[in-house]
């Protein structure tokens, strides 16, 4: 039936037009719906069930353990430090990634002839393959062979080992994270800046706003409010998912200083093959992400109301 509704010319069909459209719609949506079912929904159900078992990949026997995996997780020092490190990472990346990008965007926006040059340069890391660039960073940060340590030493920082010192490794990864996403946020801010009507600045000048900083505080910052919200949320979500640099550069070390949620999840699920436990961890990660997304939806809704 659906096939006929979709593929046969109108004259060959007899059903009512509404019914025909409904059949066509169902037929069009069917493949995507099927994918949604097999790739998203079914795995979610399986995941929830797995999280209540002690299943290990390849194991012959499985037991229901109720909420034991969840209980273990919250007393597991590795999981706890992964949460702490992930939030610390977000706390480093967020201000630098948002305000840094805003500053760059404001400066770039004011340029005329060189604007596109700066845009290209700052956006370049976004387009690069992070894994490939991470091997370059590993190289740059080598404490005795790379150029960064002597450079920082000549600036009076002492000889720092940025990847192998437990106190510095997470910050170093955060700096690389900011390096990668700065240009992306900059572009979002540039779009926001271009949307501010020029006459607002003129009106502010009439109101007595003098100087760049005053103009920024009175006009630019309030007008960029929605963009800033949006950038903040997207930066938070992508920082929350930090994984590539951890795998390539530190593997969670030294002393667990760079264990992050997704990395520990990867270890448990695909390295230790503790499938049940990893499933429970995934459920918690999903809960975090859902909370962040709800927040995002709320804020976008509010933006729509005020705009």
């Amino acid at each position: 039936m659906a096939f006929a509704a979709v593929f046969l010319p109108r004259a060959a069909r007899s059903a009512s037009p509404d019914r025909r459209l409904a059949l066509a719609g169902a037929a069009f949506a069917a493949p995507a719906a099927l994918l949604l079912l097999t790739i998203l929904l079914a795995p979610l159900v399986v995941l929830l069930l797995l999280s209540l078992t002690d299943y290990r990949l390849g194991a012959v026997a499985v037991r229901w353990v109720g909420l034991a995996n969840y209980a273990e997780m919250f007393s597991d020092p590795v999981f706890r430090r992964a949460i702490r490190n992930t939030f610390l990472y977000v706390a480093f990346v967020l201000p630098a990634g948002v305000f840094g990008a805003l500053a760059v965007a404001a400066l770039v926006h004011a340029r005329t002839r060189t604007r596109s040059v700066y845009e290209v340069i700052y956006f370049l890391p976004v387009t690069s393959t992070l894994v490939a660039m991470a091997t370059v960073w590993q190289f740059l940060l080598h404490p005795t062979l790379g150029p960064v340590t002597p450079l920082l030493a000549s600036l009076g920082f002492g000889r720092l080992d940025l990847l192998n010192d437990p106190d510095l490794a997470l910050v170093t990864l955060a700096v690389i994270g900011v390096w990668q996403m700065l240009g992306f946020n900059m572009v979002l801010f540039l779009a926001g800046l271009s949307a501010i009507p020029r006459d607002l600045y003129e009106a502010a000048a009439l109101d007595g706003a003098a100087g760049a900083i005053d103009r920024f505080l009175r006009v630019t910052w309030p007008m960029l409010g929605p963009t800033t919200m949006f950038v903040t949320i997207t930066t938070t979500i992508s920082a929350f998912k930090v994984f590539d640099t951890v795998v390539v550069l530190t593997r969670g070390g030294p002393l667990g200083a760079t264990d992050t949620l997704l990395y520990v999840l990867y270890l448990e699920g695909f390295h230790y093959f503790r499938t049940g436990y990893a499933a429970a961890m995934t459920v918690i990660v999903l809960a975090f992400l859902c909370a962040l997304s709800l927040l995002q939806a709320r804020l976008i809704e509010r933006r729509v109301h005020y705009a």
Partner: peptide, 12 residues
């Protein structure tokens, strides 16, 4: 809201 890491285990 769901990244690949969530359904990864069952799909694997």
């Amino acid at each position: 809201t769901i990244p690949i890491q969530v359904p990864a285990l069952p799909l694997y």
